[in-house]
């Protein structure tokens, strides 16, 4: 998505109509990100709202050197991380889970799942795992970058990702078992 120069100028001049058009254009995509990062739909709503407020309030800082959509995406992700950090400070961080390693084929079940179903699975991950998983696997940040963003060490980021994967596999296995039972119960 490329926003014209005229659009960006109008957006920077705080024109209400342009702001709404901009929001309508990008909000669905950004909401998808929020849902992945958030522990609940309500939290996703908060991230999107707070993120766009930050976007509009700091739009004057956008120098037009890269993609505006990319800039908004980064802002939304930073907002999600800030909310995650706040939750850690409030002591709501979920303890790490002891995950049993299994090397089962989960590709099939992932392929069958819709994105919103997959989000439900990802949402069940502990907060720290989910943040690292999203940042590394989907957004493509390196562990070094993730460490700086989340104020953790690079190694912690790596281990969190590893545990996130295992946790995800565990959940996918459970889903697969559930699916098998459902198919087995069906009359032939």
């Amino acid at each position: 998505m490329i926003f014209d120069k005229a659009f960006i100028i109008k957006l920077k001049s705080c024109d209400g109509k342009t702001q709404k058009a901009f929001y309508q254009q990008l909000a669905p995509k950004m909401y998808g990100i929020c849902l992945r990062f958030a522990g609940s739909t309500e939290e996703a709503d908060d991230i999107l709202q707070e993120g766009f407020i930050r976007v509009f309030n700091h739009l004057k800082d956008f120098r037009g050197e890269g993609s505006l959509e990319g800039w908004v995406r980064r802002t939304i992700i930073n907002t999600a991380i800030n909310i995650y950090k706040k939750r850690i400070k409030q002591g709501k961080k979920t303890e790490l889970e002891n995950v049993r390693e299994k090397n089962e084929d989960n590709l099939y079940i992932i392929e069958k799942m819709a994105a919103d179903e997959l989000i439900e699975v990802i949402r069940e991950l502990p907060d720290g795992y989910r943040a690292v998983f999203n940042l590394n696997i989907i957004e493509g940040y390196t562990h070094k970058e993730i460490g700086e963003m989340l104020e953790i060490s690079e190694n912690t980021s790596k281990s969190q990702l590893s545990r996130a994967r295992k946790s995800l596999q565990k959940k996918l296995n459970a889903l697969k078992e559930k699916e098998k039972k459902r198919i087995g119960k069906q009359p032939k």
Binding site: A27, P28, Y31, L35, R36, I110, M113, L118, I119, I138
Partner: peptide, 11 residues
């Protein structure tokens, strides 16, 4: 990652 490429639910 591919699953989320186009994922854009209405807020």
């Amino acid at each position: 990652k591919a699953k989320f490429d186009g994922f854009a639910p209405a807020p």
